[in-house]
Amino acid sequence: MKPISIAAALALLATPALADTYRIDTSHVYVGFEVDHLGFSTTYGRFNDVSGTIELDEENPEASSVEVKIDPASVDTGHKERDEHVRGEDLLNVAEYPQMTFKSTSIERTGEKTGKITGDLTLHGVTKPVTLDTTFTKKGTYPMTEEKIEVIGFNATTTLKRSDFGMDKWTAMIGDEIPITISFEAHKQ
Score class of each variant (00 low, 15 high):
1 M>Y: 02
4 I>E: 09
6 I>V: 15
7 A>V: 09
8 A>L: 09
8 A>K: 15
11 A>K: 14
12 L>Q: 12
12 L>S: 10
14 A>M: 10
18 L>D: 13
19 A>I: 00
21 T>N: 12
21 T>A: 00
23 R>K: 13
27 S>Y: 10
28 H>V: 00
31 V>W: 01
31 V>G: 05
32 G>I: 03
34 E>L: 14
37 H>I: 11
39 G>F: 02
39 G>V: 05
41 S>G: 07
43 T>Y: 11
43 T>R: 05
45 G>T: 06
45 G>Q: 09
46 R>F: 01
49 D>H: 14
49 D>G: 01
52 G>N: 08
53 T>V: 15
53 T>M: 06
55 E>T: 00
57 D>F: 03
60 N>M: 06
60 N>W: 02
61 P>F: 07
63 A>Y: 02
65 S>L: 07
66 V>S: 00
67 E>Q: 15
69 K>N: 14
70 I>Q: 04
73 A>S: 15
73 A>G: 09
74 S>C: 10
74 S>V: 08
77 T>E: 07
78 G>H: 04
82 R>M: 06
82 R>V: 06
85 H>Y: 08
86 V>M: 04
87 R>W: 02
88 G>W: 00
88 G>D: 15
88 G>H: 03
90 D>N: 08
90 D>W: 03
91 L>G: 00
92 L>T: 05
93 N>P: 01
94 V>Q: 06
95 A>W: 07
95 A>Q: 15
101 T>F: 02
102 F>Q: 04
102 F>V: 07
105 T>L: 09
106 S>W: 05
106 S>T: 03
108 E>P: 05
111 G>W: 05
111 G>C: 00
111 G>Y: 05
113 K>F: 07
113 K>V: 10
115 G>I: 04
118 T>R: 11
118 T>A: 04
124 H>W: 11
127 T>C: 08
128 K>E: 12
128 K>Q: 14
130 V>S: 01
136 F>Y: 13
140 G>H: 09
143 P>C: 04
143 P>F: 08
144 M>R: 13
144 M>L: 14
145 T>F: 12
148 K>Y: 01
154 F>Q: 03
162 R>N: 01
164 D>R: 11
164 D>G: 07
166 G>C: 06
166 G>S: 07
166 G>N: 05
169 K>V: 12
169 K>R: 14
171 T>C: 05
172 A>G: 15
173 M>V: 09
174 I>R: 07
177 E>M: 08
179 P>M: 09
179 P>F: 01
179 P>C: 09
182 I>M: 03
183 S>A: 15
183 S>T: 14
183 S>I: 07
185 E>P: 08
186 A>G: 11
186 A>W: 11
188 K>H: 04
